[in-house]
Amino acid sequence: MSTPRTTPAPHPRGRRRPRGATRVPAALLLPALLGLAFLVLPLLGLLIRAPWSALPALLTGPEVWQALRLSLISATAATGVSLLLGVPLAWLLARTDFPGRRLLRALVTLPLVLPPVVGGVALLLVLGRAGIVGRWLDAATGITLPFTTAGVVVAETFVAMPFLVISVEGALRAADPRYEEAAATLGASRLTAFRRVTLPLVAPGIGAGAVLAWARALGEFGATITFAGNFPGRTQTMPLAVYLAMESDPQAAIALSLILLAVSIAVLAGLRDRWMSTP
């Protein structure tokens, strides 16, 4: 389904346009520019105030790479778990009809609006050592999730999966369900139809959802620090490191933020052509 990669169109500046052909009303242009400035200036601020000369010293500490490595691993793992559980959930929401489906959908999207710290507390109450499920898990297997890297993945999955579910559900709703019917008339079970027809059809939506979820997981702070705590190399991800650095050494915090920014931009830019087919 992915559109073939094409060479980028020549930059519009290179072509002469009829004067006034793209005139934008000031009532739209002004707020648009303000909005742009509002979003871009803080990022510029990071770049301007970055302690460039001290940067090499700040960024060569092992804690930085530890935190970055942990961030990348846990965000990727959280995206993987989100795909595994979120795609079938999105299918359930998009393709089946049962009483309470709308309520279920609202519940699924709740983590989108829930303050992540609240999510972290909720996770503790359920999956913590003394939690409703966690207590049983601890007794049966001796496994406790809080303060472990697995706990980081759990917390990130909790906040990131709704992005994926929403994105995939949208793609599924946009995809023609009659393709699944066509597959059924050819002898495909619902699972086969889903796997061999629906999944490829909504692949761009799944990709976009995965990128969103990954980005959200990478930036996750509140649920992670609440549920998984903060221990270098085990649960201290980049955002946690940035926050704590801010307490004592703002210069280091800026340096760490720059890395996070650079990684995010690199990954999103790398995936853009592939998944985000916005012209």
């Binding site: 023609d176 009659r178 393709y179 019917e181 066509a182 597959a183 059924a184 008339t185 050819l186 002898g187 495909a188 079970s189 619902r190 027809v197 490829p200 059809l201």
Partner: peptide, 15 residues
């Protein structure tokens, strides 16, 4: 999927 049928749909629905 359990019927011995073949269907040609109006807009074909080729995958």
């Amino acid at each position: 999927e359990q019927r011995p049928i073949g269907v040609v749909f109006q807009d074909y629905l080729l995958f």
